[in-house]
Structure formats: C-alpha cells, structure tokens
Design a protein around this nucleic acid. Sequence first.
DNA 1: GAGAATAATTACCAAATGGTAAAAAATCAA
DNA 2: TTGATTTTTTACCATTTGGTAATTATTCTC
Lengths: 189, 189
Amino acid sequence: MLAEFLKKSFDKYFNAPIEAWEEFSELCEPISFEKDEIIKSQNTTEKYFYFIIKGSAGIFLWKENNFVCLDFAFENSACCDYMSLLTKEPTELEVVALEKSEMVKISRENFYELGKKSIGQIIMKISAEDSFIEKQKQQIELLTKSSKERYEILQRKFPDIHQRIAQKHIASYLGITPQSLSRIRNTAN
Amino acid sequence: MLAEFLKKSFDKYFNAPIEAWEEFSELCEPISFEKDEIIKSQNTTEKYFYFIIKGSAGIFLWKENNFVCLDFAFENSACCDYMSLLTKEPTELEVVALEKSEMVKISRENFYELGKKSIGQIIMKISAEDSFIEKQKQQIELLTKSSKERYEILQRKFPDIHQRIAQKHIASYLGITPQSLSRIRNTAN
DNA sequence: GAGAATAATTACCAAATGGTAAAAAATCAA
DNA sequence: TTGATTTTTTACCATTTGGTAATTATTCTC
C-alpha cells in the first residue's frame, strides 16, 4: 500500500522492485500535521526525512520581520531540512505544514541503515542529486528571470498553488513583497 | 603527489587512506586551460568531473546579451557542469577557465567505475550533498540579502576574488549589472 | 453568524537597480 | 610601445521594487 505509493512516486527517477519498497516502508512511520503546524523548528537539527502522502509543506527562513520560503513540497515528494539532515547540525530553517497533511517519516538512523542496502543507496543518491538540480534551477531563475516570469514558471510547475498556498509565501519564494506580487498578478497581459 | 593533493583537499569532508586516493589518481588525466578557454560549451553534455589544482573557472549561462555566472571555483575544488554530468543530458551551461589553469579530469565512466569502490561512493555522495548545500546557501543569500551584503559575503569567502576575476562576472553572480556593482563598491561605509 | 484577526489590494512616495551613453582606465596584441 | 579592444566608472533618467498606510476581502474563532 505505502510501498506501492512510494514506488509510483519514485519510478520517474529509478526503478526498484516492490520488495525493496516494502523493506523501505517498514522503517517509515505515518504522521499527520495540521495546517501551520511546525514540523521542524528553527535552530534544531533535522531528525527525519519526510515524504508527503497528502497536503503540503514549506521550508522557511526568518528574515527581519518576515518568513521567506525556500521551497514548497506537495504530494509525492520529499520534505525536510535536508541541509541539517546531511550535516547533522542545527540550522535556522523551519519546516511548516501549509495544509492539513499526511506524511510518512523515516529517521536519519534508519535512512542511513537503508544505505547499507541497495534501495537506500539509490534513494540517498537521487535525493542529493535531485535536490542540487532543483536548487540550481531556482538559482538560475532568480538570476535570469524577472519576478513576473518567475511567478509564471511557478504557476506552471504547481498549477493549483494559488488555491493552496498563501500569496505572502509565494511572494517570499519569488523574492518579492506581497504588494509586488499583487501588482504583478493584476497587471494586464 | 596528486593523491596527496587530493587527500588534503578532501580531508575537511571525510578521511580516506592515501591508497584510496592513489587509486583515484590513476583514473585522472591532467589538463591545462588558457584564460577564457571554454571547458564545456553550451548545449553539450558534460563528460568530465574536473578538479582544480591551480587557477579558476566559472559556470556560465547566457542571458539575453550577457553571461551570468552561477558559480566560481578556485584551487582545491571541483568544477564541472554537475547538472549535466548527473543527468547525462545537454544543458545550456558553459564552463570557462577564468585564469590560466591546471586541472585534473576524470571521465563520468571512470567516476562511476570508482562508485563501485568505497572511495568513489563517498566522493560522489559528498559532491552531491555539498553541491546542494552550497546552492541552498546561494539561494538564501539571493532571497534575504541586499546586493551590497552579497558582495561582502563573496569577498569574505574569496578575499582575492577582485584581483582574479573580472568585475562583470562578479556582478552577474550577484544578480546585478556591472554599473550597479561599481556604484556599490564606490559607496562610502 | 458576528466580531476579530489575518491577508490581499491599492495608492503613494522613496529607494534601489536597470539601461543608455560617454569617458576613463586597464588590458591585449601586434 | 602603441593603438585597439575591453572593462570599469560615472552620469543621467526610466523602471522596478520596497515601505508605509489605509481599505477591502478573507479566514478564523467563538
């Protein structure tokens, strides 16, 4: 059940037999979050790797008097303070559920335990590599696109984002103020 | 010789015996580049992972009528179009030597060959993880710091960058025009 | 459902940055 | 070295974005 869900979600990255995913599932714990519930707070060390079954989450960073969103995560994708999980160091990043969510979590210890088996190796490798690629794409957008273009790209990537995520979070992700995003949205063409 | 150099460069990340690095070195080829020589051109697939012994390089992306720099790399660090190396797909990224440089390169095939031995596994894992962390830090700077602050952070990271790298490349890395960087540099305090 | 709290929109002006252009400085190449 | 090319600086104005504040809309809570 969970194993099938995971297999489907990861099939675009690599193919592993269902047995491997069953083995993975056994180390996962289901967990639920309410909207706005903090999954990992600032200045703590990430202990878990989460996978979203239903709902959404954001990675936030406090800046002056606002939160800035570094990433959104929806169904069928991973979500955690990956930097902290990798370095085992606390970070200022906060992970927050943005909707009522159902997830599974796997502890760092179990994650690394899995690393000794082939499925874990592949997941860890894909996670790190894919995370890098996504981050580099974000950097490219910030450096080469206007805020309006970045908004359009985000909408194409997550067509229902505006129905699910507060505009102020979207604005912070784009690197602009909510007022600017409002202007962009209300500009013709 | 090369093995010792590599070992020293990577010791901050993980410890491997000199023998492992000797094994690694055997798969490396030395290669030199002139200033401004293209290491990997746009719309090609990256074939090599480079390690800089001396000199520097930049990862560039064409934007309208200028190049934008995504990353600088100096001595003791890796340099390549890592996204393309991982995906085996061509990208629009260009890798350029920014000074007369001495590097060693290892082909993707040999890199993955090494993956079967423990040293390769660790290098690949560290490369992906560290690349992600650096990219996320860049994203955080772009989203939460002013261009002046970003310039100061870059100067602290690479104190001699202004002596080695053209200001237009630094400006593009910071996400601003050369004129803006010139103004920032000539502003008191 | 009513009131309170939060979020989004709009307007206004200030600040930062972009774009064009020209001059000065630095670098390159014969 | 000298002239050509490229880079950096400066100046000017246009555009974008930020910040404050007030209004409207939405969401939350009882």
